[in-house]
Amino acid sequence: MQIIFFILAGVALVTGGLVVFQRHPLRSALWLIVNFFAVAGIYLLAHAEFIAAIQVIVYAGAIMVLFLFVIMLLNLREPEAEAKFMHLGQKVGGIILAVFTVLLLIYGVMQVVLPPGKAAPPGLGNTESIARLLFTDYLLPFEVTSVLLLVAIVGAVVLAKSKLK
């Protein structure tokens, strides 16, 4: 199990880096798919089957198609010209701050001694218990999410509709 985790984590890290460092947006998007699958695998190892499935269906599926559509519609064939206004000081400062933040995060997380986790519920997957929570204790946040989606839809119409009367 541990070996699988480290392989998946390594793939996720490397492809994550590749997403950022590619010049061509299409390649970034394709590497992102690999990254999503690796992360889905890690979820599976943590017995979060529902999240793993959602990760593949929503992120690797729907959202990636959306990304590719946007890249296609914008017709981004030529890589963007490199930003010229970036000063050396900004670069160095940014890198130092980023490294410092990461070290701080690692330090904090290393302090944690987690209590032994509960065993996974019997049966295949945890979809049922998630559904149960969503419709009982987390009913209100679940419903509020629908308001959030409605706001996003209205916003998209306002910003993108070709002719607003």
């Binding site: 987390y138 209100l140 946040p141 509020v144 999410t145 308001v147 959030l148 706001v151 996003a152 209205v154 916003g155 306002v158 910003l159």
Partner: peptide, 24 residues
Amino acid sequence: HLIMIFLGLEVMSIAVYVLAGLFR
């Protein structure tokens, strides 16, 4: 619950992002 606070923040923010760009 912190998830409620986060959802509230997002509902508010998304609406305001759009309003800020109202003059397209």
